[in-house]
């Protein structure tokens, strides 16, 4: 346990510091509120104004982003596979074929259901 004792002590100090500062602040600090103090960020910068209707990104954006990630990850696998293609042999080919097929099935689904049409 000796190995971890310093970590525990450090954690204890950090916890104590947080608790003590909050308690001290609450006990000693003056309590005068104004509008600026109630802002999310007290440094004076206004938060970005929300667009009308709730500040959402269009859902199409998510679709496109996720499609990008899918193919991005596919590439991550394809690179090392290509490097070791020789030594992996038939096994590598079959496995990669299955993997690519699965990804393409997802792609086909997205495509057929209109996920690639922006409007």
């Amino acid at each position: 346990m000796n190995l971890y004792a310093p970590i525990l002590v450090l954690g204890g100090i950090a916890l104590a510091f947080g608790v003590v500062s909050l308690v001290m602040g609450a006990l000693t600090g003056p309590k005068r509120y104004n509008r600026a103090k109630l802002e999310a960020y007290e440094c004076g910068i206004e938060p970005t104004p929300q667009p009308i209707g709730g500040g959402r990104f269009p859902v199409k954006y998510y679709l496109t982003a996720m499609l990008f990630i899918v193919f991005d990850i596919e590439i991550v696998f394809l690179y090392p596979w290509a490097v070791y293609f020789d030594s992996l042999g038939m096994f590598g080919l079959v496995e990669m074929a299955m993997f690519v097929a699965a990804v393409f099935v997802a792609y086909a689904y997205l495509w057929r259901r209109g996920g690639l049409e922006w409007d």
Partner: peptide, 8 residues
């Protein structure tokens, strides 16, 4: 996977 293809 076939189910996804059916959907597609």
């Amino acid at each position: 996977v076939v189910g996804v293809l059916i959907e597609a």
